[in-house]
Computed example of a mutant assay.
Amino acid sequence: MSIKLAVPNKGRLNERSLQILKQAGLEIEDGVERKLYATVKNGDFSVMFLRASDIVSFVHKGAVDMGITGRDLVLESGLDVEVMLDMGFGRCRLSVAVPEEAGMEEAEDVPDGALVATSFPNMARKYFAKLGKKVDITVISGAAEVTPRLGVADLIVDLVSSGSTLKTNHLKEIAVIAESEAVVIASKRSLEEKGEEMRDLASALRSVADAEDKKYLMADVPVTALDDIRKFLPGIAGPTIMNIVGRDDVVAIHVVVDKSKIYDSVNKLKRLGATGILIMPIDRMVP
């Protein structure tokens, strides 16, 4: 049964989404530039390229079965879709930010009647209403960070990644409304009709996301060092140990290692006499 998948046509989520599809084994035909539709060479899938902000609506209406978009956009829409998978990239946060000289240190300091510029009016309105604040919302499509300097707004609600853009515009973050990252969403109606196939696709994408922060390490190590090696290279179920033909004193180990631990692991292995150390990327980790 054919699955229709929506992917952002540009922006912060586009390139990584396409890369993950490729790593999952889904090769999109004929490129993607300026196209609305594409097919997948090796599966019963079609891909639609849409604005990330429109994907939630298309999925909700069942025009596409699944989509990759930002959690922030799902929350802002308020539409009833199924979040099947956190993708682990495109991480950011929706924050309240004010001019550095404004004298506000937390959201509770925002005065009634303050003018808030944002591309997320629904989330901003709900957040300040929950605080009991009566603010005025100005909806903008981008560049919220310049609005206080231009006198268009007193503060902003906007997506923040590193915070460098805020600093450049002399703004400071005083509250976080929501955390966001790329997610796979699904139409609830489609899940009833194509649930197995959709879960298979989500599982394939999950296997890529799970492999994102992992590396595959291989090395020849002295047998006498194995007990020490097991202490810092537990792997998923312990290192795989293989005999080397003609050697009784050395074995080969294969193990999956967190990317953040590769540097220390290699140094420890070298101190224990390991040789032939190889580090390889992992496309997918299928449980």
Rank of each mutant, 00 (worst) to 15 (best):
P8E: 01
G11F: 12
E15G: 11
K22N: 08
L26T: 00
E33D: 15
N42A: 02
D44L: 04
F45W: 09
A52R: 13
I55N: 04
H60S: 09
M66R: 03
T69S: 03
V74Y: 09
L75E: 11
L79W: 07
V81L: 03
G88C: 13
C92R: 09
S95P: 04
A97I: 10
E101T: 04
G103H: 05
E105C: 03
E108Q: 05
V110C: 08
P111M: 08
L115C: 00
L115S: 00
P121G: 01
A124T: 05
R125Y: 01
R125A: 03
R125N: 04
R125T: 05
F128P: 08
A129R: 13
K134E: 14
V135R: 12
T138S: 08
G142H: 00
E145S: 04
E145V: 07
L150I: 09
G151M: 06
D154Y: 13
L166N: 01
A175G: 06
A178N: 08
A178I: 07
A178D: 07
S180M: 08
E181R: 12
A182S: 11
V183G: 05
I185G: 00
I185E: 00
S190G: 02
M198H: 02
R199M: 13
R206L: 15
S207M: 11
V208P: 10
A209S: 15
K214I: 12
K215N: 12
Y216I: 15
A219P: 14
A225F: 14
L226Q: 08
D228W: 09
I229N: 02
R230M: 11
K231L: 15
K231S: 07
V250C: 06
I253S: 06
V256Y: 14
D264G: 02
L272S: 05
T275Y: 12
T275R: 15
L278N: 08
I282A: 13
R284W: 08
